[in-house]
C-alpha cells in the first residue's frame, strides 16, 4: 500500500484557477521525493492536499489508504508533518521550547513525554542552548531549523518541507542538506518542494516536475536534471554539475565538485598532475 496516493486529483482555487489538474502520484515509505517547478506550478497546493488543508475537487488523495476527506487536518498533520516556507507564519510562543511543545500538546502527548520530546528535538537541531529564547529573536536559519524541529518532535511518518532554502545562506543550506540526509538515514519519508535545484542535486532524489498544475515528469534526479528542455519549459534552471556532466558526456552525474574533479583527472591524466590549474600554470 502506498503511503500517499493521488488519484486523478484536480483542484480549483477560489478564483476559479485550476491549480491541480488530474494529478496522479504515489509516494512510498522511506522515499525522498523532490517536487519541483516554477512559481505557480501547483507544488504547495499539492503539499496542502496531503495533510487535508485542501481537499480535492475531483479525484482522491489517500494517506495510508484512507481518503483525506475522511480525516481532520489535525489527524492528518500528525502523520504528515508540513514545514511551511515562511517561518514567521508559525512562530508565536514566548520561548523556543514552548514553541516546540505547542504541537505536541495539540496532539495530546502526555506532559512528561512533551518535555522529553522537546529536549530531543531541540538537541537534534542544535537549538538546545536556545530553549529559553524568544523564537522571534532567532536568526532566519535558526527559525527555519526550529520550524523543522517542532514538526519532527511528534515523529510524523512523512516530513514535507515547502521551499526550505528560501532566504537561507550557504551555511544554512549545508545544514539543511545534512539534516535531510540524516532523515533519510533514519528511514523517514521526506518530501521537498523547491525550485532550488542546486540544493536538491547532491541529494539525488526521485524528482517530480510540475508545470501549470500538472505533473509533467517523474523520475530519478539524474535523468530529470540532465533534461535541459524539460527543465527550461518548466521554468527551472539546470544545476551546474548536471550541465557539466552533460557537456562532458560523463557516463554518470557528478554529485559534487570533488566527483567531477576526480572524473576529469582520471580522463585527462596529465592535466591533473598539479603542474597546471584551470587558470594557467600552477
Amino acid at each position: 500500500m502506498a503511503l500517499i496516493e493521488f488519484e486523478n486529483v484536480s483542484y480549483k482555487m477560489p478564483n476559479e484557477v485550476l491549480a491541480l489538474e488530474k494529478v496522479n502520484l504515489r509516494v512510498d515509505e522511506g522515499e525522498l521525493v523532490a517536487i519541483v517547478g516554477g512559481n505557480g506550478a501547483g507544488k504547495t497546493t499539492l503539499l496542502k492536499h496531503m495533510n487535508g488543508l485542501l481537499k480535492p475537487v475531483t479525484g482522491t488523495v489517500r494517506v495510508k489508504g484512507k481518503p483525506t476527506t475522511e480525516s481532520s487536518v489535525a489527524e492528518l498533520s500528525k502523520q504528515i508533518g508540513l514545514v511551511f516556507q515562511n517561518s514567521d507564519h508559525q512562530l508565536f510562543s514566548e520561548s523556543v521550547k514552548e514553541e516546540v511543545a505547542f504541537g505536541l500538546r495539540n496532539f495530546g502527548f502526555p506532559p512528561s513525554e512533551v518535555e522529553e520530546r522537546v529536549a530531543r528535538a531541540l538537541n537534534a537541531f542544535g537549538l538546545g542552548q536556545m530553549s529559553d529564547r524568544a523564537p522571534l529573536t532567532l536568526s532566519g536559519g535558526e527559525k527555519k531549523r526550529l520550524c523543522i524541529a517542532l514538526v519532527t518532535a511528534w515523529d510524523p511518518i512523512v516530513l514535507a518541507l515547502d521551499e526550505p532554502t528560501v532566504g537561507q545562506d550557504h551555511l544554512n543550506k549545508v545544514r539543511l542538506l545534512e539534516l535531510v540526509r540524516r532523515l533519510i538515514r533514519d528511514k523517514r519519508t521526506v518530501l521537498i518542494v523547491s525550485h532550488d535545484l542546486e540544493f536538491l542535486w547532491p541529494l539525488q532524489p526521485r524528482t517530480v516536475v510540475m508545470s501549470g498544475g500538472r505533473i509533467v515528469a517523474d523520475g530519478p534526479a539524474a535523468s530529470i536534471f540532465t533534461n535541459f528542455e524539460l527543465l527550461e519549459s518548466s521554468g527551472l534552471r539546470q544545476p551546474q554539475l548536471a550541465r557539466l556532466a552533460v557537456a562532458l558526456e560523463s557516463p554518470s552525474p557528478f554529485r559534487d565538485v570533488d566527483e567531477a574533479v576526480a572524473w576529469l583527472r582520471e580522463k585527462n591524466g596529465p592535466w591533473s598532475s598539479g603542474s597546471q590549474t584551470a587558470f594557467g600554470k600552477g
Binding site: L53, V73, S77, F84, H89, Q90, G103, N106, F107, W154
Partner: peptide
C-alpha cells in the same frame, strides 16, 4: 493572504 497561511500553518501543528 497572511491570515490564510498562518491558519494553515497552525492547523498543520494540530490547532483546531
Amino acid at each position: 493572504m497572511d491570515l490564510t497561511q498562518i491558519i494553515d500553518a497552525q492547523k498543520s501543528r494540530g490547532l483546531e
